[in-house]
Design a protein around this nucleic acid. Structure first.
Lengths: 251, 251
DNA sequence: AAGAATATTGCATAAAAACGCATAATCGTG
DNA sequence: CACGATTATGCGTTTTTATGCAATATTCTT
């Protein structure tokens, strides 16, 4: 039996049964478990399945990438979320961008908060509805499946017509010289509109996003008032952002 | 059973029942309570649920109460949802109103569906993002906490600018003479705009909503093309709707 | 405040995975 | 064909992971 054949058969079994178990495959193909494990690792590397202890599973259908990202570095993100809470006060109108960190912030907002929350993320909107004394406003538009936010002309226009006290920007890449950048043009436009709509803007970025850049530029670093990141970032790195006049929270 | 499978099943149970209990899970999976507790802790760390003494709960009470409502009278609503699926075909642009029944419909949409879904419910938008080949468009506006739908002038205007093949209207009250009525003025305006935007409109209503009325009138019954309800309704009652030219599905 | 139910912690064990290495199969090339 | 190079596979060892058990701590109930 050829390796590629075996790989295909493994994928077929996975599709039919919703799971494959390494030891079963080993017996079925009369081949050592090592080889099966290698197969599973290769298929996982190729994105054909999700490797788990004991075997493999298909990608979970429900917005997989998003829930995956939700599980990444949860501790760092939680500490960022806690720091962000300090910027939020009663009476404010707050614009909350999509993204996993901002979702965590929303989840941690105290039940007692009295404010208006405007968001382009349906998920954050649903979460914010938990807060009795908070008005929730959803920005419409086409929904991006990967990031679960609305974008497009409708969203940009809606943002252009509003003015808010505080904006919490979810960022993909932040670079001292190249500024705020994202991989998608429409997202860049939406974020730019957010920057313009908000009096104060805070960017929430975990350590691995600092010093990186993507294709589309949103704005220079100086457009930010606050940068909130986790404690694992060195002071020298942070200084390069402080140089643009940004107040950095890091703990 | 693989650990990840178990985790997924726990999350499914949580979604369906609005809660999970450690001892129940232990018995159900025939596994020690220690392991279940570890599972619950891991899921809580990953932000997938909130750990509480005795078991786990979903994050937002909103989604919890919604899931509970989803469970109430599940059979009647599920059969309505199944019937509604028959109206939906590839290539359509579908407008989906908020409401538990419509959420059930969305959850049951097949992964293979190719269509555009427009909705005023952030929760339905999130659920629809599961579908790989579906474009999701969120209608913006102020979010009503009780029903988790957007409304207001923005929503109405957005609806006025579009034309869709099929509209699935969630209704509160349906009366042969008084027509479609809802308890809130803004919701009435939104639903009216939906009726105008859609080529064909189907109202999804469980038995207890028929023959009742609320304050604000949306439109007469004749504005509907289809009425989908459950089998517990007598033919005489249905005839009073058929008299307005509505095609009734009831099973 | 006491007792029951539930959680946490540390530890033991078995299963699974990873690693390094040896061997066999396959391939490309002159 | 022969040869070296690459690739695939299997074996033994070490490391990691999942799970259950016992002891202890915490929380809930009454």
């Amino acid at each position: 039996m050829l390796k590629e054949e075996r790989h295909q058969l493994i994928l077929d079994l996975l599709k039919n049964n919703g799971r494959v178990v390494a030891t079963d495959l080993s017996r079925k193909f009369e081949i050592s478990e090592d080889t099966i494990r290698r197969d599973l690792r290769e298929l996982a590397d190729a994105g054909q399945l999700v490797r788990v202890h004991g075997g493999g599973l298909p990608h979970s259908p429900a917005s997989a990438s998003f829930s995956e990202r939700l599980q990444q570095a949860p501790e760092a993100k939680k500490s960022i979320a806690r720091a962000a809470l300090q910027l939020i006060h009663d009476g404010q109108v707050i614009l909350i961008d999509g993204g996993t960190t901002n979702l965590l912030v929303t989840q941690q907002l105290p039940e007692s908060l009295r404010a208006t929350i405007i968001t382009n993320s349906p998920m954050i909107a649903v979460e914010a509805c938990r807060l009795t004394h908070v008005d929730v406003i959803q920005i419409g538009g086409r929904v991006y499946k990967e990031s679960l936010v609305t974008s497009g002309a409708v969203a940009v226009q809606a943002l252009q017509e509003m003015h808010v006290d505080l904006g919490l920007l979810g960022v993909c890449s932040l670079h001292p010289d190249l500024g705020i950048t994202v991989p998608d043009l429409e997202e860049a436009q939406v974020k730019r509109a957010m920057l313009q709509a908000a009096d104060q803007v805070a960017a929430l970025a975990s350590a691995e996003k600092l010093g990186t850049a993507a294709t589309h530029t949103v704005a220079p670093i100086s457009a930010l008032m606050y940068l909130i990141t986790d404690g694992s970032v060195s002071d020298e790195v942070l200084d390069s952002y402080r140089a643009s006049g940004v107040t950095v929270f890091s703990k």
